[in-house]
Design a protein around this nucleic acid. Structure first.
Lengths: 232, 232
DNA sequence: CAGTGGTCTAGACCACACA
DNA sequence: GTGTGGTCTAGACCACTGC
């Protein structure tokens, strides 16, 4: 039994070290919680927390009855903070400014109905707006909101507060899908973001649901040179 | 005391509901763990786990002595899986193929020294390689490895196994910085990825350290139409 | 069915940060 | 100092799942 290695962080370190030095090679099964608790001289709950967190990080794969294995494909998980645009801009020290460009109710186009699994006659509120940092274009927001799912939407005017910020405060959600990609600036986008046509644009798309009901689809196009960073 | 709401997931749901209906508005302090444990009729450890996970998700902000507050800026954290390219390609059902294009040792150029905090005469191994999915270009990898930090690097030949995969298996690391952006395809990149010059390219850059020592800088440029997705 | 991880409890001590 | 969250323990029961 190892002495005085009883914190869950210590156990994580030991386990990681054993994986790195191939004591427990990728794909291999590692001892059960009771056995490890005895070896480390701690309670099973402590081992459990260490192993659970390593599993969350994608290092281990745990299954009841089958035991705990070292993950073969070392999938790392990167965590990105997705803040409000306003917060993001203000955190750089720049002044934030918001402008509503368009606001209109439509019957959802086919591509959107497909994306959100909407019915044929579903109505959506389409919004386009700009977010500026010190008066330089920071982000263009293209948003569709499923009107049936957000019933007091008619009372929101979106002239002073962006749809993202409004929705975050008014509308709960349970599921989010995010996609990152690189797209080309078309004529409109180039105009809005002060780019040349054909320039690359970092784009994120987001769909949110409330327990199965689609709420909104949004595409965010960022100005020149934007990059999304994280560290862990 | 609420009856039969004693699992940590139940508690998370209740807390989220109270935040959504503004029982506990953003920025407000919420009751301590002992009080909540009494209210929910469960142990403090159970409340603790619920609150800890909500704090990890960025919903709550916890401080010893100061208590637990509802986070003002609703920063959501998106978790992205960063798998090996090979796994990523194979998971789509395509056949994976790898090619080494260049391999040469240099004195680190100034921009790289700045990025990795290297000394003036630091040597780096520069590698360029391609990853294919069913013989269509999937990813171009441009990598610099700090030779001093990876001492058995001379024995690796990288003709059959990519540097990413080799490093993951041989070299532990403690810190990673990842950045996503959209870049323009220059002549070489267009050639490698079968693109036109000027096309947008989804790019990720990664720097890894082992307890303060820089290991490697890598830039990954993805083929047309690639997008990184996550759901939570 | 049986073994493994998943969770909960009641109690305890500790560490940090605010007064 | 003192109150809050952070962690650990010893024990218990449950739930999933592979055999």
């Amino acid at each position: 039994m190892l002495p005085s290695k009883n914190s869950y962080t210590d156990i994580k370190e030991i386990v990681l070290a054993r994986i790195r030095d191939h004591t427990w090679p990728p794909g291999s099964i590692i001892p059960g919680e009771i056995e490890l608790a005895e070896e480390f001289g701690c309670a099973r709950a402590t081992v459990n927390r260490a192993m659970r967190e390593l599993a969350e990080d994608g290092i281990l794969d745990r299954k009841r009855k089958a035991g705990t294995r070292v993950n073969k494909s070392p999938v790392r998980h990167a965590k990105f903070a997705i803040p409000l645009v306003r917060i993001e801009v203000e955190s750089t020290g720049a002044a934030y400014r918001y402008t509503l460009l368009n606001k209109k109710i439509f019957i959802a186009p086919a591509w959107l109905r497909a994306r959100l699994s909407l019915g044929d006659s579903a109505e959506v509120l389409h919004l386009q707006c700009m977010h500026f940092a010190d008066n330089t274009p920071f982000q263009f927001e293209d948003r569709w909101i499923n009107i049936d799912a957000v019933h007091n939407i008619e009372n929101a005017d979106f002239t002073t507060i962006g749809p993202n910020e409004w929705l975050v405060n008014e509308m709960p959600f349970t599921d989010v899908e995010i996609a990152f990609s690189a797209r080309v600036a078309d004529k409109k986008l180039a105009e809005y973001l002060s780019l040349s046509i054909g320039e690359p644009v970092f784009t994120t798309e987001r769909i949110t649901w409330l327990s199965g009901t689609p709420i909104t689809f949004a595409r965010f196009s960022f100005g020149r040179g934007y990059s999304l960073k994280t560290r862990f």
